[in-house]
Design a protein around this nucleic acid. Structure first.
Lengths: 156, 156
DNA sequence: CCTGTTTGCTAGTTTAGCTAGCGATGTGAG
DNA sequence: CTCACATCGCTAGCTAAACTAGCAAACAGG
C-alpha cells in the first residue's frame, strides 16, 4: 500500500502529520471549552454529553460506570454528576435490561437539541471542509482517522 | 482539485468522515482522562500542560491570561492553577519581555520529561499509523487536518 | 447455596472553581 | 504630557464539584 520514499523525507511527513493531529487536538480542546462557556456548564458535565452523543450514535448503552471510566472520576462523583444532569433535564436514568444493579443513562430530546444548537456551527464548518475533498481522498482520511483512534484506544 | 461525484454518495463520504473525526475526539478524550489518572492530576492542570507543550513547540509565549482563555476559567482560578503547577515543579512564572503587567509561563524540563514519558506510548503508536501511508496521502491528511483546525478555530 | 465481586448510592471531607475588588502597568484622546 | 480608562495578575472569601469510606442490592462461580 505504501510507496517507497526516502527515509528522511518520510520522517518529516510523518512528523508533520503528528503535529497536525496535536494542533487539531488543541483546537478541539478550545472548542470544548468554548461550548462549556456557551452552554453554561462545567467541563465534566459537557464531556459526558459529548460521550453520550457519540455512543448513542453508535447504538451503545452507557452506564454510570462507563461515565466514571471515561472521565476517570470516582463512581461517587459520577452519581452526583448524573444527579445534576438529570435535575437539569439533560438525561434520564433507566433500568438496565439485564443487570439489576446497573442503570442506563439516556439523553433527553432537549439535551440533543441544545447540544446540536451549539455544536451545529462547528459541524457545518467541518462538513464544508470535508466537502472540499473527493471520495478517494476522504476514504484515505477516514482510514487514517480510524486507525489513529484504534491505536490510541488499544494503547490505553 | 475535487472530482465530480454523485451528490448522495458525496454526502455519505462526508458524513462518514465527520463521524470518524468525532470518534477520534472521543478517543482523545479518553486518552486525556487516562493520562490524568496516570499522572495523578486534575483535568485542567493536565490540559494546561498539553496546551503549553503544543504552544512551546510552535515557539509561542503563553501568559496566564492565555491559559484562562483556553480553558474558559476565570483569571483568579488560573492564578491558583498556576500556583499548583509551579509548586509541583511543572512550570515557572517569568516576567513578560515587553508588558510589565503580564507574566509568561514556561514548562520545566521535569514537566516535559514527565509528559513525554506518559504520552510517548501513544505517540509511538500514532507514528506507526502515519508511517503506513505514503507521502502523497500524508499530504492530503495534513491538508485536511489543518483545514479542520482552521474551521474550528475561526468558528470559535 | 454461599463467598466474593460489581454497581450505584449516601455521608462527610478536600479540592478547585467562582465573584468581587485591588494595585500596577499600559493605552489612547485631548 | 496628562489623565481617564482598560488590562493583567493577584488576594480574599464563598460555592461547586471532586475525593474517600462504607453500604445494600444484584450478579457470578465454585
Amino acid at each position: 500500500m505504501a510507496e517507497v520514499v526516502s527515509t528522511s523525507d518520510k520522517r518529516t511527513a510523518v512528523t508533520d502529520t503528528l503535529r497536525s493531529v496535536q494542533t487539531l487536538g488543541d483546537a478541539l480542546d478550545r472548542m470544548n471549552s468554548g461550548m462549556k462557556g456557551d452552554m453554561d456548564m462545567n467541563a465534566s458535565d459537557l464531556a459526558t454529553l459529548r460521550m453520550l452523543t457519540i455512543r448513542e450514535h453508535r447504538g451503545q448503552m452507557v452506564s454510570p460506570h462507563d461515565v466514571a471510566t471515561h472521565l476517570r472520576i470516582s463512581t461517587a462523583s459520577t452519581t452526583k454528576l448524573i444527579d445534576r444532569l438529570e435535575k437539569s433535564g439533560h438525561l434520564e436514568r433507566r433500568p438496565h435490561p439485564s443487570d439489576g444493579r446497573a442503570r442506563v443513562v439516556v439523553l433527553t430530546d432537549k439535551s440533543r437539541r441544545e447540544f446540536f444548537r451549539h455544536f451545529g456551527v462547528h459541524l457545518a464548518a467541518m462538513r464544508q471542509v470535508a466537502a472540499g475533498f473527493d471520495d478517494a481522498q476522504l476514504e484515505t482520511i477516514v482510514d487514517f482517522l480510524d486507525q489513529l483512534t484504534e491505536s490510541i484506544t488499544t494503547t490505553d
